[in-house]
Structures are given as structure tokens and as C-alpha cells.
Amino acid sequence: MSKIKPSKGAPYARILGVGGYRPTRVVPNEVILETIDSSDEWIRSRSGIETRHWAGPEETVAAMSVEAAGKAIADAGISAEQVGAVVVSTVSHFSQTPAVATEIADKLGTDKAAAFDISAGCAGFGYGLTLAKGMVVEGSAEYVLVIGVERLSDLTDLEDRATAFLFGDGAGAVVVGPSKEPAIGPTVWGSEGDKSETIKQTIPWDRFHFGDRSGLPVDSQGNIKFPAITQEGQAVFRWAVFEMAKVAQQALDAAGISADDLDVFIPHQANVRIIDSMVKTLKLPEHVTVARDIRTTGNTSAASIPLAMERLLATGEAKSGDTALVIGFGAGLVYAATVVTLP
């Protein structure tokens, strides 16, 4: 048997830079109230959301990603040619083939970086980060771009009271690269496919286009509704506050970090009430900065954690070198949590 030379990676990996892109159009709750029976007060008290961004025609999944990733590359102090792989997590890029990551890698000016998309819903950032860490340590790429990007406004039924106010659009990106010290902890992740019905697309694309269209939901004009994301809000809320606090605690334990050692908590921005409940259950001390970017960004699924991270660093609420717990969770159901050193 011939001997195969192994690849040579870095001892550890870290997040070296972060960048975000928020669409220019800001949508206040008043706009949501045009299509559902609700109130600004209800939306704020049940979700924390005051405004969200919705993308315009030019703000495509690829365009928003290139903006966010360009900032992350600059923040990391590297050049695009040094990027060895581009991992894009999204559920709202409507052209399935080819992967949007390839277009992004090209537009950024990478040197033929490996590029692919992943589908892990609101846990997508943590899934991508875990892959990136593996690549850097294993040696298949020195620098990896992880991008979370969504145009969830395209998948929102504006007549659905349970979701119309919830979702937003945007892109967040990080560059992961070599480190002398551990700076990304063990990932606690998993899936619970037995709960796949709790967050899902209303109609699969094939049925929407060529299947039996009888019985499909119609809008107020009688047209068959475009597929959208629906959820069983209470069931998801219960799972998030009960199970995800445990996963977050496991990630702290796995990294050997106590709540007292923590500087920043960046959970997926699904609902401020989930965030507040987790803070309580985890008994996070006062000094821990908690991301509540949902107020002005809504739920941007895979983009929410890097977007919140970027904002906390930009406003000075968090600083480079801080220890942060990140946890993503959502459709699948899937989840991923880890502890990182902020770039």
C-alpha cells in the first residue's frame, strides 16, 4: 500500500473578521399592519421587533453576500485571493443550481476558492462555522468565508398573523483562519427531524408548479399563494426556551467556560422573548452583553448571528478578544452552539 501524504493545517482556528449588509429599505410595524390584524404594541411585546429590512430587486442573495463578505475580508486584513473556501448558508436563494457560493466567490475575486451552499436554517451560521474550523485545522483551506444570507421577505406570507411581522433580509459574513490559541470551542449541534413539521415551507416547489394544485392556500384575490415559511409558534417557542438553553449550557461546559467568564451572548435573533428567557435560564450575570439586534433587524435566519456580532462590535458594546457564546436554532429542527473569541 502506498503512503498518502496528509494535509497540514493550523493548530487552531479563529474568527478573524466580520461584516454585514442590511438592505436599505427599513420596514416599520405599520407596514405589517396593512396586511394582518395586529398592533404595533402586540408585535413589540411578543417579539421585540420594531423594524426590519426588506431587500429590493438589486439586493439579491449574491449581491448582499458580496457586500458583507467584502467587509469581513477587509476586517480580517487579508485579500480575497487568500480565501480558500466559501460556505454559504441560505434557504432563500431560488436558483438551486449552481450553488450561489460560486458566484459570490467569483465576484469577490477569490482564486478559484472551493464554494458551496448549505441548508441548515437558522442554525446555518454555526454549521458553517464548524465546517470552516474543520477545514482550517485539517488544512484544506487557510482562510474560509462563512456567509449567512437570507431574503426571507420572499418567503413570507404577509397575510399570516403568525409570521408576517417576524422575518427580515440581510447578509452576515465572517472569515475563519489559523490561530495559535483555541478561539472556537467545541460545537454542540444536532437535529430533531421528528419536529420537522413545526417550521416548514407551506408547499414544496414541485407541487406548487406541476403537482395537484387543488386545496392549495389562496390569497385574498383567489390566486394560489407563493410558498412561504409557516410555523407552529408555541411549539417552537417551547422548544427554544426549554431545549436550547440546555444546548447553550452544554456549549459553555464543552468550552470550559462559566457564565461568569463570558463577555457576550449572541443567540439567533428569533424572538426577544426567547433571548430573555435564555438569559434567565443560563443565569448570565449583568456584565454579559446580550445581542438584541432583532429589534431593528427582525429574524434573518442564518444571517442573524454574524449581523448581530458585527453590530455589537461596531457600536462598541462588544470588543475584539471578548468571549462570546453563539447559538443558532430553527427549521429542521436543527441547532448549533459554540463559544468563540470575537474578532
Binding site: 411578543r46 411549539a235 417551547r238 422573548r273
Partner: peptide, 25 residues
């Protein structure tokens, strides 16, 4: 409110060793 109620239920389940499904809440 409806979301705090979910938290109350989750805490009650732990404390009293009962299962309270969403549809009963």
C-alpha cells in the same frame, strides 16, 4: 401573556412531573 404561559407550563412540567401538551395549554 401567551408566551409567558409557555414558560409557566415548562416550569410546571419540571416541578410537578407532568406533561402538558401545547393543545391543552
Amino acid at each position: 401573556d401567551s408566551l409567558s404561559m409557555v414558560e409557566v407550563v415548562v416550569a410546571a412540567e419540571e416541578r410537578f412531573d407532568v406533561k402538558i401538551p401545547d393543545e391543552d395549554v
